[in-house]
Nucleic acid binder design. Structure first.
Lengths: 339, 339
DNA sequence: CTGAAAGCGCTAACAA
DNA sequence: TTGTTAGCGCTTTCAG
């Protein structure tokens, strides 16, 4: 009847109450065979009565696994990221795992320290959108047996499983679409040139421009904070005024949209525009913003699935999943779509 | 020299390498006093050399705390939520904690089971935006000593610390603002009437209408999925056609915006509109959407801070923090703001 | 100032 | 089919 302290019951309490040994109780808990129905039921009854819940910390300590995975993203405010996180979370739950979420703010140092923290918590796996693609910035702190899947960004040197989209091809198609409209001075606006996605999209843009026999004009900023209205005026609207804009990610799109507005220019009407990264209200703008839609949820889901396959023991070399995007043509590129 | 297995080093390894006892190594790790500089340095050197990281699971098992908090939200896609999560995460990190994130999808059952899972992982505290305000839907599964802070929603019966915004007052002010424009048939559109926020905002709306001697017209749907274009046509544009719309949360705003558009109506131009919940592109719509801005990050930060105060031992009755909102007047309500 | 030994809650050899 | 006995990696009395 009496539980040791006023504390939460432990398996010892359960065993005592059910008048069985600790191991038997443990067996019941884990649905092991070799337990008589009789005792099993007794144990289950006590578990129910006491409201006993196994201590996952203790379980993990013993089993050398935590049933937790880590996830690190640069920026939760980005709807792309938020959706990916949600998907990872769902898959994790379906597998009986929880996800410990951390954000790096795009800073490799912070990313590293977050990973150290997660590893110290014995995570079984890690899903990460790396903050820097240049080097293997954290492979050295991943212990043996902890699996890593990168998504969105690809790491240069690292043989992790990965999920990305067809950045280059999609950017090229978008560029060619703009060229087809007859624009000649199409400017690409991007940020954080060290990122894989940025590089790939730039490469795709260049390829598209070349295919259309146009001269590429790439405007990259180290950090988004540089992308101000003044910067836009100088870089994009200056001497050789652009006649179309291709923004390379969500943040750049936001800042460009706002910056142009501040300059009294309406994107899509006064100057054609197309965005890499679609978002919720793109179709509600006037004119509607044409955009490359990345399947964010699917990216997250695929990443999580790759991870859990590894956790279930899939051997073999690293896998790379590359997902297609959708070019959502609305009005801002010059198309005259009906809604 | 040799480490036991090829495994990650433990404190035992460190102690052995440094030729001190386990306890001494432990002391150094925790910066306890009573260790000679000499040995301390030796231990630190070995820790460095071996790349030793304490196992937080083991630490937590012993200390009866996990240095992890849980966070449960209904919908990560909502930018309001995403920002709050981010803020909680930051505060947690500053306190040496990690956050385990789960989403309930607004379903109390799922919420409950997620909480059970988190509790099994020995979380030290929980930040939650409850999926149902009607009853204390999870108080019974929170063990003694685990602190809970609710945010956004308020639970009817439960003495948890909480952070909310001035839902009623803000809704009233927004309504009065619309009335001031001279609209008579202002319709409020909301969802999930069982939620505290919905009820408060409706109450504020009613108060505002009453103050303006207008008849309240509240259109609530049990679930957002009901809010279709056809529903809008019937409820809002029917016989007694509304002459202004007040949407009660982000999802409703999105659906209304889109639904009206499908019906060939531009919100703010063809019918005035104001939204409870502001978002990133509200100012970029044409016309700009007037909206009540909730301080999402601050909500998250305050919630986390309340929680950590408790974790640090603050005693006393539950605290309720109520944060103000900002009424961002743009054009959709009929105002003619310059940008 | 230091160390031996006990134990957090659980699982897994190894007997019985 | 069961139970006894060791630990998982760490912190912490309580002696030296």
């Amino acid at each position: 009847m009496a539980i040791k302290k006023t504390q939460v019951p432990t398996l010892v309490d359960v065993a005592r109450e059910a008048a069985v040994s600790l191991k038997t109780a443990s067996r019941v808990l884990n649905n092991s065979k070799n337990v008589s129905e009789e005792k099993a039921n007794a144990v289950r009854a006590v578990i129910e009565r006491l409201g006993y819940r196994p201590n996952e910390l203790a379980r993990g300590l013993k089993a050398q696994r935590s049933a937790a995975i880590g996830m690190i993203v640069p920026n939760l405010s980005d709807p792309f990221t938020a959706n990916a996180v949600h998907a990872v979370q769902e898959v994790a739950r379906a597998n009986g795992y929880v996800v410990i979420l951390a954000s790096s703010g795009g800073d490799p140092e912070l990313e590293r320290s977050e990973i150290v923290s997660l590893v110290g918590r014995q995570i079984d796996g890690l899903v990460v959108a790396p903050a820097d693609s240049r080097k293997d910035s954290f492979g050295d702190i991943i212990p043996n047996g902890v699996h890593v899947v990168t998504f969105d960004q690809l790491l240069r040197r690292a043989d992790f499983d990965s999920v990305t989209v067809t950045n280059r091809r999609s950017a090229r198609e978008a560029t060619e679409h703009l060229a087809l409209h007859g624009y000649r001075r199409i400017v690409a606006i991007g940020a954080r040139p060290h990122l894989y996605t940025c590089q790939e999209r730039v490469a795709g843009y260049r390829a598209g421009m070349k295919a259309a026999s146009l001269e590429a004009r790439v405007c990259l900023v180290e950090h988004e904070s540089i992308l101000t209205p003044a910067w836009l005026r100088g870089q994009v609207l200056g001497a050789q005024r652009a006649d179309a804009i291709f923004t390379l990610n969500w943040v750049c799109t936001m800042l460009t949209l706002r910056g142009l507005r501040k300059l009294g220019i309406t994107a899509g009407r006064d100057i054609p525009m197309l965005s890499f990264d679609d978002f919720d209200l793109a179709d509600m703008l006037t004119p509607g913003l044409s955009a490359v839609l990345q399947p964010a949820e699917m990216l997250g889901r695929e990443a999580a699935m790759l991870l859990f396959e590894r956790l279930k023991g899939r051997p073999g070399p690293s896998r790379s999943v590359v997902l297609p995007t959708t070019l959502n043509l609305r009005e801002s590129c010059g198309c005259d779509q009906q809604h």
